[in-house]
Amino acid sequence: MQHPRDVLLGAQATAGMLPVCDHYSGVEARMRKSLQLQAELTQEFGTCVFDVTLDCEDGAPVGGEAEHAALVTELALAASPQARIGVRVHPVDHPAFAADIAQIAGKAGARLSHIMIPKVESVNDVVLAEKALLAAYPAGLPLQVLIESPAAVHRAFDIAAHPRVQSLSFGLMDFVSAHAGAIPADGMGIEGQFTHPLVLRAKLEIASAAHAYGKVPSHCVVTEFNDVQAMRTAARRAAREFGYTRMWSIHPSQIRAILEAFAPDEGQIETAAAILLAAQRADWAPISFQGALHDRASYRHFWHVLERAHSTGRTLPAEVMAWF
């Protein structure tokens, strides 16, 4: 019997989806703790529920970029084979970019899940990054990109269309700063980032560009990491109102809040399972379920619900567990 993923997604089917949380750390002690926490939560949930992205751009001290890249390489090579580890390198126009890629991808490429390229302004930056990546590690890796300026937002659809790009992230703080004071400082805060029109427009453009090309839109940071309830609210809005399917964490206390906000609830999981099981029994022809018509368009939606539930460690009905 055909797998629902193959029936519903066809050539667009993938081996899975990205974890909904991408946790950033750049200081050695925090990078080590992040990898340890990832292993602990993987054991708790039965699947890897967040990525760890080791940060060279903000983590490396000025003048110590080479040493930091060597440390990141060491951590990636020493991690569990089951770990999901990404690396944020320096921007393509930074003097340390080429050395970052040569060192980290060249020596630890097989242990990485992705490379994050910050301050991408156009698809040309992606082309440059891909060229450097393939020179260092011919097998290649997915590239995730940070959109951090008004001009980059304008070009988001072209950037998302590049086949090497896996995910688009919104760089809130640089985006606000790029407006030379036209957006007030509270546009970077928990309230302002969800109310200022220019910030909202950028978020929606990036999410739309990502979805247009089957890429993952990743929501920006919440800097108020001590306010867990505010974090939950922000993550819920990112997922339910803005179409984001992934979000950055910059503090361990934010990880569970993101998982909770992006995971389907029990009722959604039960409904999705019931509809897809009925569809499978009907050989994926249209069905009536609780008085409503469903066909492959809605089946695809409910399949994504189950994929998201599985990726966030939620319990699935026994009848659909065989699909995972």
Results as ranks from 00 to 15, higher is better:
M1G: 13
V7T: 02
V7S: 04
Q12S: 13
A13G: 04
A15T: 09
M17Q: 13
V20L: 04
Y24T: 11
Y24L: 12
V27N: 06
R30K: 15
M31S: 10
S34Q: 11
S34Y: 14
L35Y: 03
L35K: 07
A39M: 05
Q43Y: 04
V49D: 06
D51C: 12
T53S: 13
E57A: 04
E57M: 06
A60I: 02
G63H: 13
G64R: 12
E67I: 10
E67S: 14
H68Y: 12
H68C: 14
T73S: 01
E74C: 13
P81K: 13
V92E: 02
A96L: 05
A96V: 05
F97M: 01
A98F: 05
A98N: 03
D100K: 02
A102L: 07
A105W: 03
G109L: 03
S122A: 09
D125Y: 05
L128D: 09
L134M: 15
G140F: 13
A151H: 10
R155M: 11
A156V: 02
D158M: 04
D158Q: 12
I159A: 00
A161I: 01
R164H: 08
S169L: 10
G171D: 01
M173D: 09
D174F: 09
S177C: 15
A178N: 07
I183N: 00
P184R: 02
P184E: 10
F194W: 15
P197I: 05
A202I: 03
L204S: 15
S208P: 03
A212K: 01
A212H: 01
S218V: 14
T223S: 13
N226A: 13
R232M: 15
A234V: 06
A238V: 08
A239H: 14
R246A: 00
W248R: 00
W248M: 03
S249L: 15
P252G: 04
P252D: 06
R256K: 13
R256G: 04
R256Q: 13
A257G: 06
I258L: 12
L259G: 01
E260A: 10
P264R: 08
A273T: 02
A274D: 05
A274Y: 05
L277E: 04
Q280H: 12
A282S: 14
A282G: 09
D283C: 06
P286W: 03
Q290E: 15
G291I: 04
D295G: 05
D295A: 03
V305G: 00
V305N: 00
G313N: 08
E319L: 12
W323D: 04
W323M: 10
